[in-house]
Each structure stands twice: as structure tokens, then as C-alpha cells.
């Protein structure tokens, strides 16, 4: 099972390091990372494998959200399926 972690906000030193560290803590494997700037947003998108996640996925979603708050960023974690179904036929 895959999920997408989206980080939105101001660019800063150490964003990838902190998000990666949190992923490693919960056995969430990073498959791909892209960065882009869309309109006023800086955005980093990570595709991760949550098959071996060692806590409930809903808790992982909350933890990532909290991590975002401490860094002044918005971190949204969602099942990959929602993007697949909305944008692919």
C-alpha cells in the first residue's frame, strides 16, 4: 500500500531530513520525492510505502500533521488511491 505525503509552505533547511526521519521511525519507506513551486506554494511530494508501517495509518497521518505544525508547514498524508482515481481513467 502506498501513500502520498505532501508538504506545503515556506522553504526551509532540513525539511526532507525531518520528514524522512519521521518516516524511518515508523518503518515507512520513501519511494520517490519531487519538489515544485506552484503559484505561491512551495510543495514537496513524497510517495511512500506504508505496507510495513508500525503504527495505525490514521495515527501516522496525525503524527505527520503534528510534525508539520512544529515546523510551520502543512503536511498532508493521504492514500495514493484518491489521486489515482481522481486523475486517471
Amino acid at each position: 500500500m502506498k501513500a502520498v505525503i505532501t508538504v506545503i509552505g515556506q522553504d526551509n533547511v532540513g525539511i526532507i531530513a525531518k520528514v524522512s526521519q519521521e518516516c524511518a521511525r515508523y518503518d515507512v519507506n520513501i519511494l520517490d520525492i519531487t519538489q515544485s513551486v506552484l503559484k505561491e506554494y512551495f510543495a514537496m511530494v513524497m510517495l511512500v510505502d506504508i505496507s510495513n508501517c508500525n503504527i495505525a495509518f490514521t495515527d501516522f497521518v496525525d503524527n505527520m500533521k503534528d510534525l508539520g505544525k512544529t515546523m510551520g508547514l502543512q503536511i498532508i498524508t493521504m492514500h495514493e488511491e484518491i489521486f489515482q482515481s481522481m486523475h486517471k481513467i
Binding site: 520517490d32 519531487t34 515544485s36 510517495l47 489521486f83 486523475h87
Partner: peptide, 12 residues
């Protein structure tokens, strides 16, 4: 990998 634009569009 999914298209970043699509992901950001959904979130927006």
C-alpha cells in the same frame, strides 16, 4: 510517480 500538479490540485 504521480503528477505533482494533480496531487496539489486535489489538495487545493
Amino acid at each position: 510517480m504521480l503528477n505533482t500538479k494533480d496531487i496539489l490540485e486535489t489538495i487545493h
